[in-house]
Write a protein that binds this DNA or RNA. Structure first.
Lengths: 232, 232
DNA sequence: ACCTGAACACCGTTCAAGT
DNA sequence: ACCTGAACACCGTTCAAGT
């Protein structure tokens, strides 16, 4: 299970493999070729070994992709300005940093899963929880609220970002939205009264704004839940 | 693209294939064996044909799974009591119906993707939009708010439900939570001040409550956003 | 128009053998 | 302890041939 950590702990060959090295190379391949493009054969070739060698450091492809996605999640902490402000703005900044990190590595979005078990996912939930704990909310609600926020961040990011991994290779985002808008327009207005009038919004929408709209609703709900006390 | 619809439009053989038949059989196999267990060879055998025949009705496995997931989403409408109440309770009932439908078919959770293009996903967003339109919110915000709610429902459901498809075959949910709780306890309290104290909440938590906690926060935020008018 | 099934071009993963 | 690479047991998908 644990296998090697650390890089060539002394006396190892200079070009020794390690889980870090493998995950790093996997991220690069995933960025370039997507999840289907990542292959143990190809990855092994890049690292100048045989496919079997990789299995000494990761137990299978699922674990490898999960580790790679957690690596991407880690980028968010580098971008996040960190605390120093009130809980509300801290949560918002953190959420946006996660969205942006996943936005740059779309294949990762659908692989950040709950409850967290990997290093950076754990860090994320802990940070959210600590911010929530600095709120007017009663202590017994901290965990459920922190979890709800964490689920929103990763779940909604995945909803918005993951579809890109399917289409982007073949059609551009704009072309996809335009085609979808045309399909909505062609629907029967009696069956779909809302969608048939909403197509211009679909064409114009910015993904990041979609994410923050719901986020602000959720964080706004926090104020309500906490009662009329200092802003969260 | 379009291929056959409808079942044996007259003069067809009684046992003729159709997309509906294929999707129905796929749902059954997905329920039983999960996404990896669904195989064109196996599916063809169940339907007493060769694998090639399926490609006349669906273009590939991705499309088949997407259609199967949309089928599952359709179950939610059967369960939903429907309108007759205010927007807030209507949205809540619809959201919970979707969660429960996905809960019964966990493999589907990660395949409901946005923006909607398939029949039931379209219906869902239209229904949410219609409910939101019956709110005090200004009209120009209807689309973004409806989308935000829709993203919450499918995205957070997927976060909560999808992990089960990975573990359930090997370990039970309780065993997984217990193991995760133990890992959290073993973390350094200085690095993870929140998580190390939260493990009992993790063990006790009910998935469905996690979903509704965030949902109520989000819907509560709607009241704030709409100003002090009649409840949404 | 729709079905058949063999064949192609891959995969992830294992494992005996090496160093 | 770690690496090698051939081999196993599959896949999704295609396509010439049938009805």
């Amino acid at each position: 299970m644990q296998r090697t950590r650390g890089r060539a702990p002394t006396g190892g060959r200079a070009d020794a493999l390690s889980q870090e090295l493998i995950v790093e190379a996997a991220v690069a391949l995933l960025d370039e070729l997507g999840e289907r493009g990542l292959t143990f054969r190809l990855l092994a070739k890049q690292l100048k070994t045989g496919p079997g060698a990789l299995y000494w450091h990761v137990s299978n492809k699922d674990e490898l992709v999960a580790l790679a996605a957690d690596q991407v999640l880690g980028h968010a902490f580098a971008a996040d300005p960190g605390s120093g402000e009130d809980a509300g703005s801290g949560l918002r900044a953190l959420a946006v940093a996660v969205f942006d990190a996943l936005d740059r590595h779309p294949w990762a979005a659908s692989h950040v899963s709950a409850p967290p078990t990997l290093a950076n996912a754990l860090r994320l939930l802990d940070r959210i929880g600590t911010l929530v704990a600095g709120t007017a909310l009663p202590a017994e609600r901290h965990f459920e609220v922190a979890t709800a926020i964490s689920y929103y961040i990763t779940g909604v990011s995945a909803q918005i970002i993951a579809p890109r991994t399917v289409h982007d290779a073949t059609v551009s985002r704009d072309a996809f939205l335009a085609r979808t808008a045309r399909r909505w327009e062609a629907l029967d207005a009696a069956d779909y009264p809302f969608l048939t009038r909403a197509t211009e919004h679909l064409r114009d929408h910015a993904d990041r704004d979609q994410f923050t709209t719901g986020l602000d609703l959720l964080l706004g709900g926090l104020n309500t839940a906490a009662g009329p006390r200092p802003p969260v």
